[in-house]
């Protein structure tokens, strides 16, 4: 057991992977609680798709992958918020704006891949994740991004919860609905960029939606649900990295597989408890 642990952390790339995965799981677990509460999984999916041209573009232009992810994901979050007017009331406008941005971004990613022929092998890891090649510099940037996003969420969390649950009442209480809705999409962009580094652009829901959705089945108190979401996210990413290291199974499959099992178990637990 000790031997296995020593082996696991013997290489710096594995330490980096664990540091990055842990940071992403904490951020995505908390942001994910609001994604599930607000029913914004579609917006989340789109921002994840945006991660594809973000990462591909960064590699094409010789920039850090995480930087490309973060810039394009937050910019798109802002775009969706502003174009879709960022309010629950305008679900249809938002949905159309999201679909438009999603298609364009996927095409842009394809363009970047075509322009940079050497990237072709990297496409799989951009889309489906890898734990190889996370540098210490990227870990530092990731932690900085996570701290900024969590600080922003700590500031807006309570009014955001109010407006997510009952927008008209929150608006009447003086909560700036529009600004917070857009602000949350920017924070969501940061969380997705962080997560995509490990899980790949297509599988960010492994840390963003699966733990939060499972936690939401188990507890109904906001603070506890966020803690549970983070806890389940850590279980997913730690077990995914460990199994992947020892078996060579792809990390993208392992995190989503563990996430799926946890979610299914949480649903069953709730059914059985009769709640």
């Amino acid at each position: 057991m000790i031997d296995a642990l020593n082996q696991l952390f013997a290489y710096q790339f594995m330490q980096n992977a664990f540091l990055a995965g842990t940071t992403a799981a904490v951020l995505a677990g908390i942001v994910g609680y609001f994604v599930v509460l607000r029913g914004e999984a579609f917006a989340g999916h789109t921002l994840a798709i945006v991660g594809f041209p973000g990462a591909a573009g960064a590699i094409l232009f010789g920039l850090p992958q995480l930087l490309g992810l973060a810039v394009l994901c937050t910019a798109s979050g802002l775009g969706i918020g502003v174009l879709g007017r960022g309010a629950l009331r305008d679900r249809h406008a938002e949905s159309a704006a999201i679909g438009t941005i999603q298609a364009f971004m996927l095409g842009l990613g394809f363009l970047f891949v075509s322009l940079y022929r050497g990237l072709l092998e990297g496409v799989y890891s951009i889309l489906f994740g890898t734990f190889l090649g996370v540098t210490r510099a990227q870990v530092v940037l990731l932690v900085a991004i996570a701290l900024v996003a969590l600080a922003a969420l700590a500031l807006i969390g309570r009014p955001l919860l109010y407006l997510s649950v009952d927008e008209p009442a929150a608006a009447a209480a003086g909560v700036p609905v529009r600004a917070l809705s857009v602000g949350f999409l920017v924070v969501l962009g940061l969380a997705i960029a962080s997560t995509a580094l490990i899980t790949g652009a297509l599988l960010v829901f492994a840390l963003l939606v699966m733990p939060a959705a499972a936690a939401n089945q188990l507890v109904a108190r906001p603070g506890l649900a966020m803690l549970a979401s983070v806890g389940l996210g850590l279980v997913i990413v730690w077990s995914g990295l460990t199994i992947s290291y020892f078996t060579d199974l792809p990390i993208g499959f392992l995190v989503t597989g563990v996430g799926f099992v946890i979610y299914a178990a949480a649903r069953m637990a709730r059914q059985l408890s009769g709640a």
Binding site: R158, P159, Y162, V165, A170, V175, Q217, R221
Partner: peptide
Amino acid sequence: RLRARDLVRLGLDGDRW
């Protein structure tokens, strides 16, 4: 899945930063 009590609490301080 929010507890009813938490929903009531939002009326008290849900607009605070």
